[in-house]
């Protein structure tokens, strides 16, 4: 139910945004007046790059975690490489942002709400729920961003094309997916974090028709999007298909390889453990990102009966 509410909420924001003035943008923390066609845009999450790239707009500043290669070629082919790094997504440098003299800042609800006032003093700021939002919310945010940058029509066309692409993938993946439960998680040196059903990846898997075995007891819902998980907890979830994004090699999950409990997992027994690029799945969200995820899933499913 939770995802449904979120999707409805996101849709409501989008619908609301379309009825207000062109320069008035409703977002997570209120309404912001933005210039007609902002030229100097700073984005503080990767999914906002996805939005800009989808209508061919280049930001002047990106919170790229001070690692320029985190902006993958699929994006740089469109937005170029002339952006200034404004630091990490977690703690972007307000000074660098101010020095860029932006006319629009797009920030994340979970990461940057505390800095909203300060960001708003620098430039008109809109705040969207990228990190903790699900797939449907991220698509809904595309419309808000399209309006904020004065490219509503182009964005609508792109969103429609994206939905058609995804519908195509759903048609190919869906019938098989209905027979499986699937779970995505990222792992680094110290632990495994499962992306719960309310997360971006969780909602994507659900959309493709996969079941989720991540069910809290007694009818509760997961409050957390990213859930730290031990091997024993994973064995209780025990999905048919396990998809891991490894940030390091060897990862924490690799250290389980010889344990009886790991070998007993359904996904391990059926040879249905898959590795995907952690960065593309976990850090990137948006339309192009979702299409990459769908492509990976199609590849995974075409190998199964």
């Amino acid at each position: 139910m939770n995802w449904l509410l979120r999707a409805l909420g996101a849709t409501a924001i989008m619908a609301f945004a379309t009825v207000t003035n062109a320069g008035e943008i409703s977002h997570e923390l209120g309404t912001t007046t933005v210039p007609d066609a902002p030229k100097r845009i700073v984005v503080l999450e990767f999914s906002f790059i996805d939005a800009l790239a989808s209508v061919g707009v280049s930001p002047v500043g990106i919170a790229d975690d001070k690692k320029r290669d985190r902006i993958i070629p699929a994006y740089t082919d469109i937005i170029g490489t002339d952006w200034v790094s404004v630091g990490t997504r977690k703690t972007p440098s307000l000074e660098v942002i101010a020095s860029l003299k932006p006319d629009l800042i797009i920030a994340d609800k979970k990461r940057h709400s505390a800095a909203y006032e300060t960001l708003s003093e620098i430039a008109p700021t809109i705040v969207l729920d990228s990190l903790a939002g699900d797939y449907h919310a991220s698509v809904a945010q595309m419309g808000v961003i399209g309006q904020a940058i004065g490219k509503s029509a182009e964005m609508e066309t792109r969103v429609a094309a994206h939905k058609a692409t995804m519908a195509d993938y759903i048609a190919k993946i869906g019938p098989k997916a209905a027979n499986y439960s699937a779970q995505f998680g990222v792992t680094n040196a110290k632990g495994l974090w499962l992306h719960s059903p309310i997360s971006y990846n969780g909602s994507l898997l659900k959309m493709f028709g996969f079941a989720s075995n991540m069910k809290p007891k007694e009818g509760g819902v997961y409050e957390k999007t990213y859930v730290p998980t031990t091997l024993e907890q994973l064995s209780e979830v025990n999905p048919d298909i396990l998809i891991f994004g490894e940030y390091v090699d060897p990862s924490h999950v690799d250290s389980w390889a010889n344990e009886a409990l790991y070998k007993g997992l359904a996904a391990v027994q059926y040879g249905q453990v898959f590795n995907v690029t952690a960065h593309n799945w976990s850090r990137l969200r948006g339309m192009l990102a979702a299409e990459m995820t769908a492509k990976d899933l199609l590849e995974i499913m075409s190998g199964l009966d």
């Binding site: 990490t88 977690k90 632990g191 974090w193 031990t230 390091v248």
Partner: peptide, 20 residues
């Protein structure tokens, strides 16, 4: 404040985790 994954590793460990 460093790299996300590194920070997650350190945070995870500083709160005291013996699940592994």
């Amino acid at each position: 404040t460093l790299d996300d994954e590194l920070a997650r590793s350190v945070v995870r460990w500083t709160v005291g985790d013996i699940g592994y």
